[in-house]
Every structure is written in C-alpha cells, then in structure tokens.
Amino acid sequence: MSLLAVNDLTKYFGGVKALEGVSFTVAAGDIVGLIGPNGAGKTTCFNVINGLLPPTAGQVRLAGEDLVGLPPYRRAALGLARTFQNIQLFGGMTVGENVLTGHHLREEVGTMAALLPLSRVRRAETQAKEQAKELLHLVGLGDKEDAPAEALAYGEQRRLEIARALAQEPRLLLMDEPAAGLNPRETEDLMALLGKLRDLGITLLVIEHDMTLIMGISHRVVVLDHGQVIAQGPPAEIRRDPRVIEAYLGREDDEEDGSGGGG
C-alpha cells in the first residue's frame, strides 16, 4: 500500500487554479521527486498535504488515514514532517534545541510529570539530547550543538532543518527545495545525505530544481505544470517525456507567439 496518496487534489486561490485534480502516490521507502517550472504549484501542493492550506477539493491520505481537515500538528503526530524552501529555524535557540523541538512528539514524559524535578524526567531529557546529537552528526553538524541557530552558514541551516525534521522520526518527510542556494560542493553533501536517509528507510517527497540531484536520487518523479500532473514515472522515462521537455523549454513551434504550454 502506498504511504501517501494524493487524490484529485484541487486548490483555487480566487480565480487562480493553483492545483487541479492532482493525483499521485508515494510508496513507503521510496524517494519521489516533485518537479515542475516555477509557479507550477509544487509548494502549494506541500502546503495542502501539510495542512497549512485547506484544499478546495480532493483527498490526502497518509497510511490510509484521511488528513484533510486536521491541523498541521495532528498531521505531524501521524508521521508527517517537512523542511521549508525559505529556511524556518527557531532563531532564538541553539542548534541542539532546534533539533530537540523536533523531538516534541516523541516526549514520553507526561505533561505534568515534565514539570517535576524527577530523575526519570532528567533521564528522558538526556536521552533526547543524545539522539539530537546523533542526528546532528548524521547531517554533519556534530560540533555545532551549542551554537546559536542563527549563526550557522546557509548550507548548515538547511541541514539543521533536516535534522530537526528527522527528530520527529517521520514516516514521510516533505523537503521543499533542499538544494536551493547551495554551492556545488554543498549540493554533493546533500545528495550523500539524502542517500543515507534512503538507506535508513525514510520515505521522501522532494521538490527540487536541481535536475542532476533529483534524477540521481529519485525512484519516481512527478511533474507538475500549471497545477496539473503532466507526467509521472521513473527518472529515465521522465527525462525523455516530450510533455516534460515542452513544459520546461516550451514547444518549438509556438516560440513566435510566446504563449507556451498549450497542450
């Protein structure tokens, strides 16, 4: 069974059709790329899956459970995590605390017990900190635990967001342009990291413009254009798909009137 099933998802902003009848699935353990030209509706699609925007119509199911209508924090509890295109770290916290925030759902100590000076509370906190440290090592920030999150370099901040999302131990991680703004070396590091995540069995849905990256890591690719899915399949197929090439480059014969993407 697919882990994520998006069915006939539609989102209108007034008269603008941001998403129209979008359907695709993500199988557990897969890395799926979500690509498309600027303004194709990729981030809107994430926001709807995530619960930041209500859909106009359609369903989103995670492991069979209907997500529509649930607030984002309930969706997170069901195993959904996300990183953002424009990095959204908790600026007033240290790197380690940012990761610990992702651990919020995993807290085993009760709401009231957490306020008591008990040894089991302290033990749970120490354990959480150790896990956070492991995650920071995984993303290559092992020595930055106590640094203020704001002091990190751009690429490091991206990796911190990933560590924070991983602390949720999500079933599905949505990544919105993880390579945006990274230099080629950082992009290589990121690719290696995503490979590691795949080996750990984490399911990923990744929006990305870097084609080498997306074609290199994805099991399947979904292509959006003007709010509609125009193609989906393994990367090798997508690369040759004439509709995809057209969406990205425009059709040769309508270059003159410049209106682009007709059919």
Binding site: Y73, F90, M93, L100, T111, A128
Partner: peptide, 25 residues
C-alpha cells in the same frame, strides 16, 4: 521542561512549531 522549549518555538515561528507537531493553540 520540554514545554518551555515548545513555547519558545511558538515565539520564534508559530507555523513551523505547529508543523513540528506542537499543539500551538
């Protein structure tokens, strides 16, 4: 406690805190 951390997360970035699974309301 972890509640304090959740509160500071809300202060720094309410939407993101909610995405992380914190029941912000």
């Amino acid at each position: 406690s972890y509640h304090g951390r959740a509160l500071r997360a809300i202060r720094d970035h309410e939407t993101t805190a909610q995405v992380m699974g914190i029941n912000t309301p």
